[in-house]
Design a protein around this nucleic acid. Structure first.
Lengths: 136, 136
DNA sequence: TATTGTTATACTCTATAACTATA
DNA sequence: TATAGTTATAGAGTATAACAATA
């Protein structure tokens, strides 16, 4: 199997895990990412769009659907009368923690047949690909 | 960075590449996968659904949209009056080849800063995760 | 004027349920 | 009866363009 096949297939395998974990809580992968981004931030709508790679108009709907389920909350920006900040609700925090734990569990399961040394090698190599500035 | 973070982030990085390559030809990632599956098969609708992990009703629309763009063709099944086979058109074949080449190019770019030895290690480790029966 | 966010609109993608035609 | 596929319907997710409110 060549590099492209291996990385593309692994990518789909990981996405299937994310889809399955989300589905346990009736969350799409995008909603899972939304919760993940908000875990340690309270961004405005535009900043949220930059994190997720989505247009502001897409963010409006995404946040509104999550808000309707009491996963996130809109707050008026204290410094800009036009702005809105988005933060997790307690329920959103709980779901985020549960989802992260379940993803960890399933990734561990995926790599369970590997030796610890191979797993460490894979982690280091994958991390190198996604951190343009290796300090980050 | 831990294993989960590394694999999840790498997965999104690869998906972004697939999205970008698809977008060059106005194709979604799902449509790209459809073309990929048809590259060396002429399956029926149900079989196609199994390959893509989608319900048959989703396949109907997916194939119809691709057919409208002359990327695929429906054929009556020779052995079953109810069945339909799906195959690439010449245009579909051309797009599939172009897309695959472009994905290869971008994955090569992604791994360009790695040594050949590291790239081979990464490929082998990723392949091991996605091939439950290492012969396949 | 420029920026933040929402709304209107249109399309893709997906599933469930009901349907048609064939086996 | 069972299977292959389509249709009707509903909803998420996405972008573009036009808009309102604030800077």
């Amino acid at each position: 199997m060549d590099t492209t096949d291996a990385l593309v297939q692994l990518s789909f395998q990981v996405q299937r895990i994310l889809t399955a974990v989300g589905a346990e809580h009736d969350l799409s992968v995008v909603q899972l990412r939304l919760l993940g981004v908000l875990r340690d931030r309270t961004p405005g709508m535009l900043e949220l769009g930059r994190h997720l790679g989505l247009d502001k108009s897409s963010i409006t709907g995404l946040v509104s659907r999550a808000e309707k389920r009491d996963l996130v909350r809109r707050l008026p920006s204290p410094h800009d009368g036009r702005g809105v900040l988005v933060e997790l609700t307690p329920l959103g925090h709980r779901l985020t923690r549960q989802g992260a734990a379940e993803i960890d569990r399933r990734i561990a399961e995926l790599t369970a047949r590997m030796s610890a040394a191979d797993r460490a090698r894979l982690t280091a190599l994958a991390a190198a690909l996604v951190t343009p500035f290796p300090d980050a």
